[in-house]
Design a binder for these strands. Structure first.
Lengths: 224, 224
DNA sequence: TAATTATTCAATGGATTGATTGATTAAAGA
DNA sequence: TCTTTAATCAATCAATCCATTGAATAATTA
C-alpha cells in the first residue's frame, strides 16, 4: 500500500462523507427527513407537511435517495418514501447535540441562564424506567393526539405541544416532568421543557424519543 | 407557545443543523478539520498537509470558524487553528459509520466478501485491555513515526501505514492484530486492516483512536 | 524604517444549487 | 379509451459556492 493509495482512499472517504453532509445541508431536506423518519409518507403528504411544492419536494427527496438516506416503494399511483437503514438518527442526533452545545456556549456568555446547562442533559431510558417504577416522575408526550393514540410510552399523558400552555393545570406541580416526542432531534419537547420551566415546573427531556423506544423493543400502550 | 412558534423554532433549528452539515459538506474542509483535530496548526502547514493553496485553505478555515468548528489563536505572525470544543468528533464518527454502513450494504450485494461484515465491528477499549492483559493480541499503531513518538498506547508497535506492506514480517503470524491510528474517522487503520487480511493475518480495528484513548485518561507511552 | 513572512481580503469566473414553471410519465378509475 | 391523480422530468434563472489571482494587512526581522 503506497502512500499515494492512502491519500486516494482518504480523499474518496472524505468525498463520500462530504456528499452525505451536503445532502443534510439543507433545512428543507432535514425537515423532509424528519417526517420520513416517522414512517412511510407519500410525496404529496411530505410536500404538505413541509410546505414545499410537489416538484420541489420530489427533487429534494430524490436527492436524499441518491445519498441513500431514504428508500422508495410504490403503492398504487403513489410513491412512499421511508427512511433508509443505517445509523441515520445517530448522525442527526450528533449534529443536534453539536448545535445545542454551540448554542449553549454562546448563550452562557450572553445570558446567565441557569436552566441552560442541564437542559442539555436529558434523562436516560434506564433512569426513566427506574423513576417510573417508584412513580416519582410524570411522563409527558407532547406529540399531536393522533400520533399519541397510535402508540405511546406506558403511563404517559398526552398534551400536544401547541396546547401545552393552556393545559398546564393537568400537570402535577410537585412531581418532576419528563417530556418526549419523536426522537432526539425533535425540537418539540425542548420547547416544551422551556415552557414548563417558565411556569415553575421541574422538567427534563427524555434523551430518546418514541421511535427509539419502540425500536428498543420496550412496551407500548395504544389508545387514548 | 403557539404552533406557529413551534414551526419557527423547528425551522431555525434545522437551519442551524443544515449550516453545520453544509460546512462539513466539502472534502477539503473535512481534510482540514481532520488535521486540525490532531492539534493546533498554522494555515501554511494545513495548506501543505492538504495540498491546497494558502488563500484557499485560509478561506475554508474561516468557513469552519464561522460554523464554530475550529478556533483560532495568534502565535507571532502565524495564526494557529485548533478544533473547537463540543462533540465534533461524535458527528464525524457518526457520519463515518453511516458511510461505512452504506458502503457495506452496497458491497454485500455486489461481492460475497466475508471480511466485509466484521471489518465494521471494531474491538472496544474494554475488550482490548482484557486481551492485552492476557497478551493474546498485538497492538499496531499505523500513524507516522513522529506522531507515534509523541505518545502512543502502551505496548503498541509502530509501522506507519505507508510502509506496512514491506514490514509485514515484523508482525506475529499467530496473534491477532488490532490496528489503530488517530480516531474513529481515520481511514488509515481500515486500509491497514485490509492489507493485513490480504496477507493472511487476523486483524481487527480498534473502535477508538489515540486521541480518544488519551481523552479517556488512560495511560500513554512516549518515545520509540 | 524597510523588507520579509504569514494571513486575510476583494474581485473574478466557472460550476453548482434551489426553486419555479410547464410538460411528461405511470397507475387507477370512469 | 379518456380522465384524473401522483410523481417525475426538463428548462430556466437567480443565488451561492469554489478556486484562483493579486492586493492589502499584521507581526517580525534586518
Amino acid at each position: 500500500m503506497s502512500s499515494m493509495d492512502i491519500e486516494r482512499a482518504q480523499l474518496t472517504l472524505f468525498t463520500e462523507l462530504a456528499e452525505i453532509a451536503r445532502t443534510l445541508g439543507s433545512p428543507h431536506r432535514l425537515m423532509l427527513l424528519q417526517h420520513v423518519a416517522q414512517g412511510a409518507r407519500s410525496v404529496e403528504r411530505l410536500a404538505e407537511l413541509t410546505g414545499l411544492s410537489m416538484a420541489n419536494a420530489s427533487q429534494h427527496l430524490q436527492h436524499l435517495k441518491r445519498s441513500n438516506l431514504v428508500a422508495t416503494e410504490r403503492d398504487g399511483k403513489r410513491v412512499l418514501y421511508s427512511i433508509a437503514s443505517g445509523p441515520i438518527n445517530e448522525v442527526l442526533g450528533a449534529l443536534t447535540r453539536l448545535a445545542e452545545h454551540q448554542r449553549a456556549e454562546i448563550q452562557s456568555v450572553i445570558s446567565d441562564s441557569l436552566t441552560q446547562r442541564d437542559r442539555l442533559e436529558g434523562i436516560s431510558r434506564e433512569e426513566l424506567l427506574e423513576r417510573l417504577r417508584e412513580s416519582s416522575v410524570t411522563l409527558l408526550d407532547v406529540r399531536p393526539r393522533e400520533e399519541f393514540e397510535m402508540g405511546h410510552l406506558p403511563g404517559a399523558i398526552n398534551i400536544p405541544a401547541e396546547v401545552l400552555e393552556e393545559h398546564l393545570s393537568m400537570l402535577p406541580q410537585d412531581h418532576e416532568v419528563v417530556a418526549y416526542c419523536r426522537g432526539p432531534h425533535c425540537v418539540l419537547s425542548t420547547s416544551a421543557v422551556d415552557t414548563l420551566r417558565q411556569n415553575g415546573i421541574k422538567a427534563r427531556l427524555l434523551d430518546t424519543g418514541f421511535p427509539e423506544w419502540k425500536a428498543a423493543g420496550l412496551t407500548i400502550e395504544t389508545g387514548a
